[in-house]
């Protein structure tokens, strides 16, 4: 059990540290690399929760494809250092921080106080030992959720066309004007 909790705390420290890096780093490219490392930490949490397929997809799709997209767009823009990375206005920012604090403390309070979750915690931990979740996941996707899966395929096609057509307005990224 000790190894489990050490792994969890190490992963959550990594995730929170790099997420704060995304928030605080004024250089967008460094923020993007922090985000990649946070995604890798989330993939680690997925592996820790014995859903290896999702961890792999997380690594391939997020830490691979999506972040490559982000970094490539940043490279196109050639942003060095931003003039004003953070929003101005002292009162507004205090309000935003307060709102965030209220959200997180409400969630944590509810989680700690609710007895149902405690019950769920106590009779868990035996988990799906040896059971391959990937196979069950594939069965579910291709039987119960097959319609949603197909719709997602259409959505992705539309998004590919839409992204190209939006960024092609007025001559692509290399237009003069």
């Amino acid at each position: 059990m000790a190894g489990d909790s050490i792994l969890f705390y190490a992963l959550s420290f990594l995730i929170i540290y790099f997420a704060l890096g995304v928030l605080m780093n004024p250089n967008p490219i460094k923020a993007a690399f922090n985000l990649v490392l946070a995604m890798v930490g989330v993939a680690g949490v997925f592996f820790h929760l014995q859903s290896g397929f999702l961890g792999g997809v997380q690594l391939a799709v997020y830490a691979g494809a999506v972040m490559v997209l982000f970094v490539m767009v940043l490279m196109i823009f050639d942003l060095k250092k931003e003039r004003d990375a953070f929003s101005q206005g002292f009162l507004g920012n205090i309000g935003k921080l307060l709102a965030a604090g209220i959200v997180v403390s409400l969630v944590i309070n509810n989680v700690i106080l609710s007895s149902d979750l405690q019950l769920a915690t106590s009779n868990a931990a035996k988990a799906e030992s040896g059971r391959d979740t990937t196979k069950i996941l594939a069965d579910l996707i291709f039987t119960e959720y097959v319609f949603a899966f197909e719709v997602l395929g259409i959505l992705l096609l539309l998004v590919a066309i839409g992204a190209v057509s939006i960024s092609r307005i007025k001559g692509g990224t290399h237009a003069d004007s």
Partner: peptide, 25 residues
């Protein structure tokens, strides 16, 4: 347990929310 993951998730969510609210890029 489950609670620890939920709290981690809440913290990460709020950091993402603050990123949207506070950053200008």
């Amino acid at each position: 347990g489950l609670n620890h993951y939920l709290i981690l998730s809440a913290i990460v969510f709020v950091i993402g929310m603050l990123t949207v609210l506070l950053r200008r890029n």
